[in-house]
């Protein structure tokens, strides 16, 4: 087994998984909502990027910007439908979960209706060609996707740590009523959370579409993967989600090399179930626990 190849695959997968999981994790902890429509955001951003690539510009920046922007808009739409009318009503977590599920069902059919069942391909925004690192070969698109997602992750983390909006969001994660009492508008903050996480999903969509195609239901698998990674990391824990992304990416790389691609999901699930049996609150819960 080639260690360089393993590390590279792990990093590639971990950066994508981190992007997918972090959005779900942040929404859960700050809004108390499980966003099952994240997959829809993913699919719709792919189409947004495709439309721009077809009609306006093939340049990498334009395509990425289109994906990110569409993602943010879609996030705002989901927030406006599933969060704003429901957040102060009884039984909110279940009702919002079902509302986001309904949006994802509606949205998938809507995309199918508009764009038809044929899959679309995005332009190769990072170009072709590859580099040698140690004994492994890495393509430009892999390097590009790692750099982009790590950059977005770092920007998001720094923003949430240092900016005023970030402090507002962290305050809302901890205690929504307390946040209202210090003058944080829950609705506007929630909408900004939805837009930021939507933008993350949009970027992930563009990056993943370098290898896969854009289709109405392309979001289902990334959604499930992002969700289980967030679950293993501990819903609401940013560091936990990142650690889980690395671990699960590593397991996927090892399984694909050692056993074969069809066993990837099984080993991943066995790992996640094992983690959750030991720590029902995920890895992030484990860290918080040992800190006390």
């Amino acid at each position: 087994m080639d260690p360089y190849y393993l590390v590279l695959t792990t990093v590639t997968l971990a950066s994508i998984y981190g992007l997918l999981a972090l959005g779900i994790s942040i929404i859960w902890s700050s809004l108390g909502m499980i966003n099952m429509a994240q997959g829809f955001t993913f699919a719709v951003s792919g189409y947004g990027a495709w439309l721009v690539a077809q009609n306006i510009s093939q340049s990498g920046i334009a395509v990425i910007a289109a994906g990110v922007l569409t993602g943010a808009l879609s996030g705002a739409l989901i927030g406006a439908i599933a969060f704003i009318p429901l957040y102060d009503k009884p039984n909110f977590p279940l009702r919002s979960l079902i509302a986001t599920l309904a949006i994802s069902l509606c949205g998938g059919q809507f995309l199918l209706w508009i764009f038809g069942p044929r899959v679309k391909a995005l332009p190769k925004i990072f170009g072709y060609g590859s580099y040698h690192i140690g004994t492994a070969v890495i393509s430009r698109e892999k390097i590009g996707s790692i750099v982009c997602s790590v950059a977005l992750l770092l920007i998001t983390l720094a923003w949430s740590k240092n900016s005023r909006r970030g402090l507002e969001i962290r305050a809302m994660m901890q205690n929504p009523e307390g946040a209202a009492l210090v003058g944080v508008g829950l609705r506007s903050t929630a909408m900004s959370v939805m837009m930021v996480t939507g933008a993350m999903a949009g970027l992930a969509a563009v990056l993943l579409s370098q290898n896969y195609f854009v289709s109405p239901f392309a979001g289902a698998t990334p959604l499930v993967k992002g969700m289980v990674v967030a679950l293993a990391g501990g819903l609401g824990s940013v560091s936990g989600a990142l650690i889980a992304a690395v671990l699960i990416g590593f397991i996927e790389a090892v399984t694909a090399v050692g056993l074969g691609g069809q066993y990837v999901l099984i080993t991943q699930f066995l790992f996640i179930i094992a983690v959750l049996l030991i720590r029902p609150r995920g890895i992030g819960g484990m860290i918080e626990h040992s800190r006390e």
Partner: peptide, 14 residues
């Protein structure tokens, strides 16, 4: 609660 719900969604996908 939801931890279990999400896990079962994953199991169905598996």
């Amino acid at each position: 609660g939801f931890y279990y719900a999400l896990l079962t969604v994953g199991i169905a996908e598996l």
